[in-house]
C-alpha cells in the first residue's frame, strides 16, 4: 500500500470514529435536555449510548481489532472487563444489600 493511501485510510478512520462518537455524545445530551423519559428508560438509554461509544473509541481511536491486535493485548482488555464487572457489580450488590438492611435505623 502506498504511503498516500495509508495516510488517507488512517485519517478517514479517525474522522469516522469522531463522527460516530459525536453522534453518540449528542444523543444522551439531547435526551437529558428533552426530558420526558422515565428514570429507568433514561438510565438505560444513557448506558447504551456510553457502552457503544466506548466500543467506538476502542475500535477507531485505539485501533482494537479482533484480527490484528496482538492476542495478549486483547487478553488484558478482556481480563480488565471481567475485573470491572466483578468489582463494580460486587460493590453495588454488597453495599446495596447493606443499605437495604439498614433501612429505618
Amino acid at each position: 500500500m502506498s504511503d498516500v493511501k495509508r495516510h488517507k485510510r488512517e485519517v478517514r478512520n479517525y474522522l469516522v470514529g469522531f463522527g460516530l462518537a459525536a453522534l453518540l455524545t449528542i444523543i444522551p445530551f439531547a435526551i437529558t435536555a428533552a426530558g420526558g423519559l422515565s428514570r429507568t428508560w433514561f438510565d438505560l438509554a444513557i448506558l447504551l449510548a456510553a457502552v457503544v461509544q466506548v466500543l467506538v473509541h476502542l475500535r477507531y481511536f485505539l485501533h482494537i481489532d479482533l484480527r490484528h491486535t496482538p492476542r495478549e493485548n486483547l487478553l488484558a482488555l478482556g481480563f480488565t472487563g471481567v475485573l470491572m464487572v466483578l468489582m463494580i457489580g460486587g460493590t453495588l450488590w454488597i453495599m446495596g444489600n447493606l443499605a437495604a438492611r439498614m433501612m429505618g435505623t
Binding site: A76, L77, F79, T80, L83, M84, M87, I88, T91, L92, M95
Partner: peptide, 16 residues
Amino acid sequence: MSDAILFSLLFATYAI
C-alpha cells in the same frame, strides 16, 4: 488497563 480498573472502582464508590 490497571488505570481503567482504578477508575472503575472510583465509579463504584461514586454510585454508592
